[in-house]
């Protein structure tokens, strides 16, 4: 699904060069749930941004679902991002003056789908996250947990192959965090690959595999997936190599 080979990211100013990622080799297989951990400033978010095609790499190669993303122009990356990747952010990133329906509609608009198809997908996504009755509500009318569910619905509506989550429970209390985590696990069980950046060792432990990044380098990597600590994973092992 995602393969990074000797991937480098360097931020340059006229004074200094900052190596955010140094020769990273990561391979995430289809259907995996991978947690990326590491201290602040270690390069986790840079990794996630490059994985999500939000930033370009400085060196190395990045293959996403068989496509060499390192050679794509901005338009092609936008298209690939729109069709294959869903994002979940720590701060939800919902547009405050759009209602829930219209927020979920945003990525679908850029696919130029018919209104009927968009509506079908939005209804389906809202049903999956249990918020079908809230589609006319605005983000400010929902709790944090509900807002994150809307963000998940927005990511799911486009049927992405890869879901990238950046501290998805970071702004939630433990009860809401648990609900969001269970939802992500459910989504993963249904076949979507998930890469989640987190500080929380408890959440990381619930992933099938952990990648630890320190000073821009992968310092610890589970090569093989393992069973989740809290939830059994029927059938998943057949999907991963």
């Amino acid at each position: 699904m995602l393969k990074m080979t000797r991937l480098e990211k360097v931020y340059r100013t006229h004074l200094i060069e900052t190596h955010a990622l140094r020769s990273i080799d990561i391979h995430v297989r289809e259907g995996e749930f991978v947690a990326v951990t590491g201290p602040s400033g270690s390069g986790k978010t840079t990794f996630l941004n490059i994985a999500g095609l939000l930033e370009t790499l400085t060196g190395g190669q990045y293959m996403l679902d068989g496509v060499d993303a390192s050679k794509l122009d901005d338009n092609a990356r936008s298209k690939l991002r729109n069709e294959k990747i869903g994002f979940i952010f720590q701060s939800f990133n919902l547009i405050p003056d759009l209602n829930i329906f219209d927020n979920i509609d945003v990525p679908l608009r850029y696919r130029r789908m018919s209104a009927a198809e968009r509506k079908g997908r939005i209804d389906g996504a809202l049903a999956r996250v249990g918020l079908a009755s809230r589609m006319k509500h605005y983000p400010s009318e929902l709790s944090g947990g509900q807002q994150q569910r809307v963000a998940i619905a927005r990511a799911l509506a486009g049927s992405p192959r890869l879901l990238l989550a950046d501290e998805p429970t970071g702004n939630l209390d433990s009860l809401m965090a648990r609900g969001v985590m269970e939802l992500l696990e459910e989504i993963n069980r249904q076949g979507t690959t998930i890469i989640m950046v987190t500080h929380d060792p408890e959440l990381a432990a619930r992933a099938q595999r952990n990648i630890h990044i320190m000073d821009g380098q992968v310092t610890d990597l589970d090569e093989q997936p393992r069973l989740r600590s809290s939830t059994p994973m029927p059938d998943k092992n057949t999907h991963v190599a």
């Binding site: 901005d74 936008s78 729109n82 945003v106 990525p107 486009g158």
Partner: peptide, 8 residues
């Protein structure tokens, strides 16, 4: 956000 969600 719109860029992240696929707008070119």
């Amino acid at each position: 956000l719109r860029r992240a969600l696929g707008a070119n």
